[in-house]
Amino acid sequence: MSEPLFLFDLLLALAVVAIAAAALLVRDAFAMIVLFVVFGLLSALAWVRLAAPDVALAEAAIGTGLTGALLLKTLHHLRARGMAGWEPGAAAPRPVPRAVASLNAGLTLAVVAGLGVAILGSPLRVTGLEIAVAEAMPLSGVDNPVTAVLLNFRAYDTLMEVVVLLAAIIVVWQVERGADAAPAPSLGPIWQGFARLTLPAAAIVGVYLLWAGAEAPGGAFQGGAMLAAIGLMLLLTGLYRPHPDHRATARLLFVLGTVAFAAVALLVAGAGRASFEYPQGHAKTLILLIEGLVTISIAVTLTALFHGREPAALKGELRHDP
């Protein structure tokens, strides 16, 4: 390992750990979220160094970008409702008894030490499943091994992942059902021009990420997250306002990916094939079909998760749109 890269790795690893600690310890909640976003982007950079560009893209777009947006939206909600403890420079939290604090620290240290022993005791750099994956790649219909694992070899996992996303939006709509209309964050009119300029480019990047996922880093989740960023921009600039009448369409788009995914799994079964055993020569078409529809569902679901409360006409907030 050449010297400059070794130094880079060391500094990056130290920065990741230091910023993770700083994000939890900083007093101001807004600074916490900003530090978390920096932490996520540096983690993604570290994962590029570890030859995992697909994971780095997913972490940057979903784990950092959209998670950061969700955190900021919640902070806006909490601060708009006004409560001591959420303002910067609020009173310190209740003091914790010394015994409890040391118990917490001791427990954490014990778990970390146990994990460290387990990791150091496990054989490093042994051959895992990469040879089995490499042998099966010609049959997978795609050239990117990660996409092949996600949508062909381990497609059940990915189907369940899409179901989890569907469950999340159901939970969010149920939890906030009946809650008062939250003050929606808004960026103001100048941003509408910015949105009109940048959204077409974002759409192209999102679809490109989906398409490139077949042979290069990218895929349905990274592309869907990019398209969800468009949804967030539309919501924040007020170019799109959720309306109760749009709920049926939204629900349809939430389940579209899951239904298409499950339907393909069931339809290819039979004639001696198991579910997800794509017929020879049709794997690429089926994978692209699933990925395309799942990307739409992911984008709409992530946008709805950001918006939060179901757009419902509840008593006291009937809309009178012109």
């Binding site: 997913a58 895992g128 994956v133 990660v146 989890v164």
Partner: peptide, 27 residues
Amino acid sequence: APDPVPHALVITGIVVMLSATAAALAL
């Protein structure tokens, strides 16, 4: 080349964590 199976697992984990985060933030 790295083993792609853990990479796919981590991508799945990132999406599941986002779903859990969204539900927890609603709560």
